[in-house]
Each structure stands twice: as structure tokens, then as C-alpha cells.
């Protein structure tokens, strides 16, 4: 693989680690951790796409005129996405705590047996 695609591929592997957690783990807290990892990987990929080689951060300076900036549009989209991700994680944690109160366990295979 060409070296310039290596960060994209590592980001994809990072996403797959989170996917493995969601698919394979039985504990609800581990599933939530996998979801958080997937969210980090998606945010990271959007910022990686907007990076410009040798660019500066998108802030104007009073003394000098900066010509080569990185792409500010993915950064603006990801900024809202991070805060939404925190609120969504809190919602999932609330549902997990309710499940623990009702069934007394975090194991999803036992929960499917204990109906009612």
C-alpha cells in the first residue's frame, strides 16, 4: 500500500476494533465502549480527509496573511458531532442502568432468557 494512504487504513482498523466489540462482547458496558470507539473513528476520519500537507490551523492572525490553511469545513461538522456523541452515550448508559435494575445482570445472553 502506498504510504500516503496509511493513516486512512489505520483509522479503518480503529473502526473495526469498535465493531468487533459491538459484535462479539456480551457485557453491555463493553458494547457501549465499542460504540464510543466507533464514534471516535468516524470523527477522526472526517478530520483526516480535511488535512492539508504543511497547512496551518484555521485561525487568522492580525499581523500576517496566512495562505495555506487546512480544510475548516470537516472540523466545523465534527465539533457538533462530538457533543452529540456525549449526549448519546449518556442515553445508552441510562438504558443500561435501567436494564440492570430490571434483570440484575449486564450479560445480554442471560437477559434474553429471563423474559418477563
Amino acid at each position: 500500500m502506498n504510504n500516503s494512504y496509511l493513516p486512512y487504513f489505520l483509522c479503518l482498523v480503529f473502526f473495526c476494533v469498535g465493531l468487533y466489540g459491538v459484535l462479539r462482547k456480551r457485557n453491555i458496558i463493553k458494547i457501549i465502549i465499542g460504540l464510543v470507539i466507533c464514534e471516535y473513528a468516524a470523527n477522526l476520519f472526517l478530520v483526516l480527509v480535511g488535512y492539508k500537507m504543511g497547512g496551518r490551523s484555521p485561525l487568522y492572525s492580525p499581523d500576517q496573511s496566512i495562505l495555506d490553511m487546512v480544510d475548516p469545513l470537516p472540523q466545523a461538522l465534527v465539533l457538533t458531532s462530538i457533543v452529540i456523541g456525549l449526549a448519546t452515550t449518556a442515553l445508552v448508559v441510562g438504558i443500561a442502568i435501567r436494564i440492570y435494575e430490571k434483570y440484575g445482570t449486564f450479560d445480554i445472553t442471560k437477559i434474553s432468557k429471563l423474559k418477563g
Partner: peptide
């Protein structure tokens, strides 16, 4: 490193 200081601050506190 990717030149996004706003995102770094927000990610840290979040």
C-alpha cells in the same frame, strides 16, 4: 497534530 485546536479542546473536556 492535524491542526484542529477547537476540536482538541472539545475532545479533552468531553
Amino acid at each position: 497534530i492535524l491542526k484542529a485546536p477547537d476540536l482538541a479542546i472539545t475532545q479533552l473536556v468531553v
